[in-house]
Write a protein that binds this DNA or RNA. Structure first.
Lengths: 328, 328
DNA sequence: ATGAGAAATCATAGCGCTCTCATTTGGCCG
DNA sequence: CGGCCAAATGAGAGCGCTATGATTTCTCAT
């Protein structure tokens, strides 16, 4: 490993000058800069980010805590965050908590020490632990709101309202909502949105759940849905919707002829299902990008800014799984 | 931020002793250790990993380069790698190259400086760039073999042979293979495996492609497959298989009654499709774990070990998308 | 007791960089 | 041509930790 001192010696300047040519190039006169750069090139010099971090007290990296990267929903957010971070000169530490609350706190604590900022994606972690973490490191929450911490969320509200209106327009009069995990922030938002949208649209609503947000839950719920006589079902998320689809197909119930199915998240799954799934699109990439922007702002000028929580819109994507209500 | 010196002062010992109580606790006598620990606790001390890295020349972190985390295939590997790394006391830097070759090299170069080891997942990067990276940092390749670099792969060979035998047993006499990207290592392996398995089984094989590994490719290929008269089709991966499924369904071609469909990778997609997809399961988690084990070994004792490339088995998972060949 | 040898602890020089302050250089005006 | 201010560069003290060699403190067998 070649150090700044070697370059300095070889170029006949002081280490400070070498440091400056890499950190603040316009503070060094052009001929000097070029000479140093040339020598650096020749020697294969590259500034050591670790040493730089120690000296500056900043690491140019952000920590990213997600419950499950293998879940397409989170994967998409992670991808966006990583990309945006890099675009801003930051690298991202990834920590997958595998849905374990205890690990979450522990991991967050560990990260705090080696990152400039933290992005917590819909953490399982109990409300009370979050401020403790946030106090030690600029933190942005994704899809969760706690106290007055910065957060960027995509409540499916608009999209679910659109879903209900879409169903109503197709002649449906009775909807089901297959609910997700009770304590999930997303589910609470979605459930509430369904209720209010159905009420406003004069749509009858039957709710089932809570269920785990899994394929099997959909399989399970399908029969309940069918039995209650609804002609349209909105699932907590795409995965559950696919379970519904599978079970309906197995039972020979035609989608959308006999029953319409709507998912939420509009992940990869919705775009590759059979039939293609009508789903509420959440702006996952924007979510990630905004989170990074926020956290970087926070790192740059702590305590600035107005709105603590930023809400992004959602929108229904109509595909093949919804159609006119069957004639009664 | 509380430093080692403050703890040392408060505990009435030297900084070295504090350092040791955290790094090599059994080198310090019990009463001392307890006192230091207590003081540390009280002051809220935690060793600064950055400073430690600089002093030790090791960062306890590994770099992880993937083409696309939003792809369930890579997401699963990433998850496993991250988990295993953490289990071994390492943190993982994630870099998603978004399939761009140029960024890959650049990102790898950048990571080399701040990680102890590198795991490159099926990089797009041209063969010749890889040794350059590997020369500067212990490196393990996943699903790719270059020179005599360490690698862990899961060629779908066994699984594809099983797929062909499965088809043959069901009475199929003519298979298609919908090929993936020409330069993809995986595709080369899979194509080769299909050819040899079909030859051995006396199965007629028709190949289509190369195609991008996307849903649309399957949609596109479906009509070609149908027209060629084959009764069974193996796709490069699950995503493509889902495209086939979708198009067959759209055209009213019953799966598996009229045609059987087989995917490869056995991702989430295969386990939530309609019908559920028969697919070749690749041990993605093991792949990730082995990669970490290898890279950590390499970090610990460079240049040791025998087998450079480790091959993992694959296995067919039979589900609902395959059935008896239709009577001719 | 007592000295040898092991165990525990101390003191401190780095790790490679940045940043502040001091010094030198250059340009420009009276 | 001296003097002054700004621009460019140099010197060196940290950043918080580990690691090495020096020193002190314990064991015991003699």
């Amino acid at each position: 490993m070649v150090t700044i001192a070697e370059v300095a010696a070889a170029a006949g300047v002081s280490p400070s000058t070498v440091s400056r040519t890499f950190a603040t190039p316009d503070l060094v006169k052009q001929p000097t800069r070029e000479r140093v750069l040339a020598v650096g090139e020749r020697l294969g010099y590259a500034p050591n980010p670790i040493a730089r971090s120690l000296a500056m007290g900043r690491t140019a990296s952000i920590g990213l805590l997600v419950p499950d990267v293998a879940n397409p929903f989170f994967a998409e957010i992670v991808k966006a965050i990583q990309a945006r971070a890099r675009g801003k000169g930051y690298t991202a530490f990834l920590a997958d908590t595998d849905e374990h609350e205890s690990e979450e706190v522990e991991l967050a604590e560990a990260m705090v020490l080696q990152v400039d900022g933290l992005v917590l994606v819909a953490p399982r972690m109990a409300d009370e632990h979050i401020p403790a973490v946030a106090a030690r490191c600029p933190t942005v929450l994704v899809n969760r709101v706690v106290g007055d911490l910065r957060a960027v969320t995509a409540p499916a509200r608009d999209g679910m309202r659109q879903a209900v209106e879409h169903a109503a327009a197709l002649g449906h009069r009775h909807c089901c909502y297959v609910s997700g995990p009770r304590h999930s922030w997303s589910n609470q938002q979605r459930q509430e949105a369904m209720r209010s949208a159905c009420e406003d649209a004069g749509m009858r609503l039957t709710e089932f759940g809570p269920f785990e947000a899994r394929f099997d839950s959909g399989v399970h719920a399908a029969d309940l849905v069918r039995a209650c006589g609804a002609t349209c079902v909105v699932a907590h998320n795409d995965m559950v919707a696919l379970g519904l689809l599978a079970r309906f197909s197995e039972r020979g119930i035609a989608v959308p002829r006999e029953i319409s199915v709507i998912g939420v998240d509009d992940t990869l799954l919705a775009r590759s299902s059979n039939p293609l799934l009508t789903s509420v699109r959440l702006p996952l990439s924007s979510l990630g990008r905004r989170a990074v922007d926020l956290v970087v702002d926070l790192v740059m000028q702590p305590g600035r800014g107005a709105v603590p929580v930023m809400e992004l819109d959602s929108q229904l994507r109509v595909r093949r799984s919804t159609g006119p209500a069957p004639a009664a």
